[in-house]
Nucleic acid binder design. Structure first.
Lengths: 145, 145
DNA sequence: CGTCCAATCGAGACTGTGTATCACTTGGTT
DNA sequence: AACCAAGTGATACACAGTCTCGATTGGACG
């Protein structure tokens, strides 16, 4: 059973069935190459008449999130988006135009969080850093001068 | 017209009318002393039979956010919460039990963002850092040993 | 390779958050 | 006191995400 994409493999290695809808969704997500909303995925699936139900799409997203193959991003608008990623602790830089994103490592944030814990007295369990801007391509495209 | 709370003052100085519903909401928010959801505020208002419409509550939250007197927090659960704050750039540490929160300054994050921009080639416009954990009080309360 | 069943699915009802509309009210200015 | 733009409440609406349930299926096992 070769030719499994990263997300398909993620389903399998986490001990979940590799069903037809899940394969199709993995493909759609990987074809997007960047952050996407649940609505994007629903639209993609409907557009290709794959016959995949809305609930299945939300369930797949939820599952991939639990597995750690997908992470939820909170856009500045308040909407949710999801971006494929590896399981290690990291953060994302998301292009606000094309939604392509890159992972960045911890970059000293863990130490910063400890520092903040010490100063505030809080015990910090979770931190989230998200950065938004323009990717190199979109910078070029938006500076016609 | 003395005795204006911080949020009431925020409405006024931003050039908006200080109406009865807005005063009441400012009071409710300040009484909460921490992060709250829109639903919390709706419940508070209904509980006190203030006769304030749902739409008015959402409009007040939106307005306070524009003014910079309130900031939206994206909880790890995906829900939205709001926390009163000053207009300067800062971040929040939120207690996941009691929702009380403290502001922290930039703490070198601006420099970190520039560093990330250089490494990734992205032009970074917005960054958001949110930290969640237990405040000192809730740590005490949850360690009965 | 056929059986089997727990995992999964699709359809559609439902909940909750947030927005839009519109006729009515009111703060605050003159 | 009069005026009117800003604001309000009721209500309908749009959309994200969840739940239920009967039907389907992946893949394990013989």
């Amino acid at each position: 059973m070769p030719d499994l994409t990263a997300l398909e493999t993620a389903f399998e290695t986490a001990g979940h069935r590799l069903t037809r809808p899940r394969r199709a969704l993995a493909e759609l997500i990987e074809a997007r190459d960047g952050a996407f909303s649940a609505a994007d995925l629903v639209a993609d699936a409907q557009g290709r008449r794959l016959g995949i139900g809305r609930a299945t799409i939300f369930r797949a997203i939820e599952l991939l999130e639990e597995i750690g193959a997908l992470e939820r991003i909170d856009l500045p608008t308040g909407e949710h988006a999801y971006v494929p990623c590896g399981p290690a602790h990291h953060h994302h830089v998301v292009c606000r135009r094309c939604s392509r994103s890159v992972e960045i490592g911890d970059l000293g944030l863990g130490a910063l969080a400890r520092d903040i814990a010490r100063k505030t007295g809080y015990r910090i369990d979770v931190h989230r850093l998200e950065l938004f801007g323009l990717c190199p391509d979109c910078q070029l495209a938006s500076v016609p001068a």
